[in-house]
Structure formats: structure tokens, C-alpha cells
Design a protein around this nucleic acid. Structure first.
Length: 557
RNA sequence: GGGCCGGUAGCUCAGUUAGGCAGAGCGUCUGGCUUUUAACCAGACGGUCGGGGGUUCGAAUCCCUCCCGGCCCGCCA
């Protein structure tokens, strides 16, 4: 892959020649390095960036690695004045090999297999995803259902990706020429693939017809007739992991549009048909299908493979993403907890490093994004390298660069989420200086959006921010000293005091009545939150309607 | 067994291209805000940069070697 260093700048990923001085400059953003590599090959426009996935079940955040990595490269190229298409193939002629444990309904809600007709689905094992009905009965097919969900998620992140159906490419004949070429050169195809797969033998034919009788993908080709453009097959059993999917025994013929290439050939075929210039892929492909694909592209198809990029998988809550184990999160779910720009930012970071997406500590990710943003606006002094990254990547992460935006710290937003009162939320944010008289209305609205998200997060995680201001008086039972202290505190609040004064008075009044301060706070939390802990009490109460606070302290309502 | 990618503070991660004082945030601790109660501020603690060896005036960074983790080397994608 890599060329001689003397070839710079074309081979010099990460280095560019700045006009005039000839000094190489460090590339702060990985997407610029990739873009350099692509441009060095002098590609035709539009430049095509591809990704792809088998629409086998829930489209989870892991699938977005590919989409987002491609997106940043696409954006960088567009910024350089290039025309770019980002396509994403739904590899939907792949057969259903096993039943997924989790599905997602039309609205993207994750449901279990038990919520659909699993039996009906089971009868479709071995068939292409596009030939299986949508388990939710709405889309054209199983494949269409999940492809639509993926597209919806891409839209949510404002990533303009063109979905391409693989089945469509077969049916329309787009693949036909490539398939013909592979079959014409079947000896070469076998030789090349045999270098990577031991099982390739004399009889191996890199084409899997669809059985005309039962509709399953077959694996036993008995004859190839390129003059008529057909292959003969026997519908034999298919090994799918631990299990075997029974063939029906049917013997028939199929055209080159009625079947599929095995993945190792299909991938390079996509490169050719779609004219792919760049393809990011997970590390599972790095030592498997990429080397063989590269070889097949050059030596069977006679094309140059795209610029590759291997990305490291990230973990979810410290564990590998796994649909079968249920360790998945969808884009829609994440976007209930944070802004799209924060999620996009997650993918700005080095693709080579394994990252953890820790939902319980989303506050850290959001804080990191906020900091990244401040760095961009020069509001924070940091390491110059990080500054260059922010300069470069931040505008690609947000929909619009707006210096007037306001970001409430995520945990503070979670505190504001303890009340439903929008005006109260705003008042508290003002008191903390996050909102000023100069803050434009749109910025206030958007800042408060985060409160909803942080509130949802606190509820989901049931963490230290999951307290709720109680609208009705909780059931309480205090000793006489505590009651007297509460009454006195109520009188104090009634005089019209601010939060700071109330906070101080809590200590004073507790002492005067010989109530341990801790116990007295607990009483307060019980009254207002029906809990034993909570936010800074006095200052919180100082923001509430005094009449409400007084009545509650007097246990009247 | 072979290959690829990782391993940097308790946690999450920058920094590794092109060698130049070991970094950030969070957490923890201490202090401040009249005040043990989670929002704010200041400070401190925290490291054999996975281990060992080598090159170098100088190594997290380059070389060798070993350990650990993930992935690939069957099928499928």
C-alpha cells in the first residue's frame, strides 16, 4: 500500500506541501490524511465513498462507524471543491442465516424476536433479505425495513448518504458484466481466492444462484453456460454457523441476475460497478476480505481497489457491541440523550483507537465535546495540536458554526431536569451565568433542549441526578424538633430570602433545634424530592415559587 | 501457531507521522463560597507511558524481544 517516501507528497499521508516554503505540515485531522491519499490518485468526479452492511437486524451505533468515517472524508473533500457521493450499500441479497434476537420496529424501537412472527421468519432462512417479508408488515421486505431504519438514522445525523440496494444492482443487470467476467476467468478467480481460502477447489464456482423452487441461495453450481448467460444448480444444504439450512433438492437453471457473488467477489464487484474511491471498514475485514478483495480487484477484475481505511471497533459500556447479546444502542436512542453534534464528534477521534461509548458517563463525552467547541472558538487555551484539530473538524461536526450558542454543562442540565418548569430551568441557568441578557432567544431554547436529554439520561441510568421535584406532598413523619425547625425555615423563606440565605438558614435552624444537620437536610430532601439526597438544597429552593416552598415546609401541600 | 491493531494517571482519552520537560477532562483529597449535602471556584495527590534490551546528547515516540487484550487466518458478512 504505502509507497516510497521519496514519492511525497502523493504518498505522504499526513504531510502536505505548503505553497511557497515547501515545508511539510502536520495534518491534524485523520480525514485530511485520507483525502490526501484519495486525491493523490487523481480520481474522476464524483469521488465515491462507500460503506455497506448486511441488513440483518437492528442498525446499531457500530454501523455508524462506517458511515461517519466516510462522512468526514466526504466533507473534507467537498471542502476542497470536489464533488463527492457517499453511498452505502444494503447488502440485501445476502441470505438470512439465523434469526436475530433483537429487531427494531418501524419507529426504531428495539423489540425482541418474540414480538414478531418468529415462525414465519424462520421459514425464510436461507433466502435473500429482499425476498423476506417485513416482520412488521409495512415495508416491501425485511431488507427494505432495516435499510429504511439505517437511512433514517443517517438523516438524524444529517449525513447525506445514498442507500444502494445490492439486490437492485443484481436485478437491474448492473452486476452482470462483472459476474460474466469472473465466470469467464473462473480459473484465475479460483487461483486468486485459493491463496486466501483453503476450501477453494477445482469445482468452485464463485456464483450462488437463487433456487427457483424454494427461493434460497444455493451453493452447488453444476454447470456454467456463458453463451446463454445461465448456470445450472442443485439446491443443496447450506452451512450457517452451527446449523444447517436445508436445501430443497431442486435442480434448475438461473440467469446471472438470479443469484449473487460470494462476498469475497461481491465486494470488489461493488467497487467496480459503483466506481468506489474510498472504503472504510472494520478490523474484521482487515486481514480477511480486504487482502483477497484487493487481489481480486486487480487480478480478476482488472481494476484498482479503493483507498482503504481500517477502523477499530468501539465498545459499548465496556463490552463489544453484540446484537445477539443485546449489547446494542441505536442512533435514535443516543439522540434522546445528547445532541447530534456530540455524537458526530465521537467519530472525529482517531479511528485507530478503540473507544468506549459509556452511556453511564455520557456527561464526560458531552463535556469533552463542549470543550472541543470552546477550543474552536478560542475560549480555552490548549495544546496547539488539539487546536488545529478543533479548527479543522469542528465546522464539520456542527450544522452551523454559531459563536452565540450556549451549552449548559450536562450534569447541570440534569439538575435542571429535576423540575418540569421551563421558566424555572431558565431562571436557574441565568443565576449560574450560563444565560445572560445578551443571549439570543434561539440559544436559550437550544440550551434548554439539553435539559430534556440530560433528564432522560438521569432517568435511564437512575443515577445521582435522578431526583424529581414532588408536585404533591410526599408521605412524611418527622419528630417534633424537626417539625419546629421546618416551620421556622418556612417563616424565614416567607420573609423573601434568596437561595444563598436559605442555604445558610438551613444550618442555623437545624442547630437551634438540635437537629443534626444531615438529618435536617434529609428531611428537606424528603419533602421536596421524596428522597434522602438531592441537589444543593437552599439554592434550589431559592429558585422555586416561595409560596410553594413555604407550604411544603409546613407540610401543607 | 502465523498476521493485523491496540496497551499512556483510579476512569475516559490526547500526545507516537517528524525523538526534545509526562498531558487533559473526570474521579479522589484538601481548601473556599458564613454552612459536612453532589451545580461554582482554587489547589493538591495521582505515572516503571505493558515488561526487558538496544540506538541516541536525549525515547511514550525509532529498532529488537517478550507479556496482555481484541480481531483475522473455517463458513458468512
Amino acid at each position: 500500500m504505502s509507497a516510497d517516501p521519496e514519492d511525497a507528497p502523493s504518498s505522504g499521508a499526513g504531510v502536505e506541501r505548503v505553497e511557497g516554503d515547501g515545508e511539510p505540515r502536520y495534518r491534524a485531522f485523520w480525514a485530511d490524511e485520507v483525502a490526501d491519499e484519495i486525491e493523490a490518485r487523481d480520481p474522476d468526479e464524483p469521488i465515491v465513498i462507500k460503506g455497506g452492511v448486511s441488513p440483518s437486524g437492528v442498525a446499531h451505533l457500530g454501523n455508524f462507524n462506517e458511515i461517519m468515517r466516510g462522512y468526514f472524508v466526504a466533507e473534507v473533500l467537498r471542502e476542497r471543491g470536489r464533488e463527492v457521493r457517499q453511498v452505502f450499500t444494503s447488502d440485501d441479497r445476502d441470505p438470512l442465516r439465523k434469526l436475530p434476537r433483537k429487531l427494531a420496529d418501524t419507529d426504531g424501537n428495539v423489540v425482541g424476536l418474540g414480538d414478531v412472527d418468529a415462525g414465519a421468519l424462520g421459514r425464510n432462512l436461507g433466502k435473500p433479505y429482499t425476498d423476506i417479508p417485513d416482520p412488521f408488515g409495512e415495508a416491501e421486505s425485511y431488507a427494505a425495513h432495516f435499510a429504511a431504519l439505517l437511512k433514517a438514522d443517517a438523516d438524524r445525523l444529517n449525513v447525506p448518504v445514498e442507500m444502494v440496494s445490492n439486490t437492485e444492482l443484481y436485478e437491474s443487470g448492473a452486476f452482470e458484466e462483472v459476474i460474466r467476467r469472473v465466470l469467464e476467468r473462473v480459473e484465475t478467480a479460483r487461483e486468486v481466492l485459493a491463496k486466501y481460502q483453503d476450501k477453494v477447489d477445482e469445482g468452485y464456482v464463485p456464483f450462488n444462484p437463487i433456487c427457483g423452487n424454494c427461493g434460497k441461495i444455493t451453493e452447488t453450481v453444476t454447470d456454467v453456460d456463458l453463451d446463454s448467460g445461465t448456470v445450472s444448480y442443485v439446491c443443496t444444504d447450506m452451512e450457517a454457523g452451527e446449523r444447517t439450512i436445508d436445501g430443497c433438492g431442486h435442480e434448475g437453471t438461473a440467469t446471472l441476475r438470479q443469484g449473487k457473488l460470494p462476498w469475497r467477489f461481491e465486494w470488489p464487484a461493488q467497487w467496480q460497478v459503483l466506481g468506489v474511491d474510498f472504503e472504510p471498514f472494520g478490523k474484521d475485514h482487515a486481514e480477511g476480505s480486504w487482502p483477497s478483495g484487493e487481489d481480486i480487484a486487480r487480478n480478476v477484475l482488472g481494476i484498482e481497489p479503493p483507498v482503504p481505511m481500517v477502523y477499530e471497533w468501539f465498545t459499548l459500556n465496556g463490552e463489544p457491541l453484540s446484537s445477539s447479546a443485546g449489547n446494542v444502542v441505536t442512533v435514535a436512542e443516543v439522540l434522546e440523550l445528547l445532541e447530534p453534534e456530540v455524537l458526530r464528534y465521537f467519530f472525529v477521534r482517531n479511528p485507530k483507537r478503540a473507544k468506549d461509548f459509556d452511556v453511564s458517563r455520557l456527561d464526560l463525552l458531552v463535556d469533552e465535546f463542549d470543550r472541543f467547541e470552546r477550543i474552536y472558538f478560542g475560549e480555552e487555551e490548549v495544546d496547539p495540536k488539539l487546536e488545529r484539530l478543533a479548527d479543522r473538524a469542528y465546522p464539520l461536526v456542527v450544522d452551523e458554526v454559531r459563536e452565540d450558542r450556549v451549552r449548559l454543562p450536562y450534569t447541570f442540565a440534569a439538575v435542571l431536569g429535576m423540575t418540569d418548569d421551563r421558566d424555572l430551568r431558565e431562571r436557574m441557568a441565568r443565576n449560574q451565568g450560563h444565560i445572560t441578557d445578551e443571549t439570543p432567544e434561539w440559544a436559550i431554547e437550544e440550551a434548554l433542549e439539553r435539559v430534556k436529554q440530560a433528564r432522560t439520561w438521569a432517568e435511564r441510568m437512575d443515577n445521582q441526578y435522578n431526583y424529581r421535584l414532588q408536585a404533591a406532598l410526599p408521605e412524611v413523619d418527622f419528630d417534633p424538633e424537626t417539625e419546629a425547625a421546618l416551620d421556622e425555615l418556612a417563616d424565614f423563606v416567607e420573609e423573601g430570602r434568596d437561595g444563598e440565605e436559605i442555604q445558610g438558614e438551613i444550618y442555623e435552624v437545624a442547630r437551634r433545634h438540635d437537629v443534626p444537620v444531615g438529618d435536617f437536610f434529609e428531611a428537606g430532601y424528603r419533602l421536596f424530592f421524596d428522597a434522602t439526597q438531592g441537589p444543593r438544597l437552599g439554592e434550589f429552593l431559592g429558585e422555586l415559587d416561595p409560596e410553594f416552598v413555604v407550604a411544603r415546609l409546613r407540610r401543607e401541600g
